[in-house]
Amino acid sequence: MTNEFEPKIVAFVCNWCTYAGADLTGTSRIKYSPNVKIIRFPCTGRIDFMLLLKAFSNGADGVIVSGCHPNDCHYTSGNFHARRRWITFRVLLDFMGIDINRIVFAWVSAAEGAKWAEVVNSTVNKIKELGPYENYREIINEVWEEEKWEI
């Protein structure tokens, strides 16, 4: 056991491309970091920004969002809608002072097993450098102080 910080990373992936791609990573025997917990969605269009907030409020240090490349969406346009949503969401988070480097977006197709491993590994390295998300942990574990209630 080492004391090195092991980030918790949640990956929201689409069923048709990235989930199959991650499967390919495994069947191709490519090793990648075990810090990631994959959650499968029907489509990137289904990945509500609230789910990302939930991941952070449950103690995630980083989040990966990944799905089909543009024009490859199983439902034709889910990823296009998702892309606009993320463009806007990042602007809002940045404006509120939330570190957008902790959310990684990628297009990983079902044939890109190697790319999935690379996305996960690079994200884990990036989050290791950034360290635990102290700002967020502070507000999650808010302590109720009596002084707070002074009028």
Partner: peptide, 16 residues
């Protein structure tokens, strides 16, 4: 509504 529409060539620089 810009959030319920899209352009296939919407520009972004953050998706790898």
């Amino acid at each position: 509504c810009e959030m319920s529409s899209f352009q296939p060539d919407d520009k972004e620089k953050f998706i790898t």
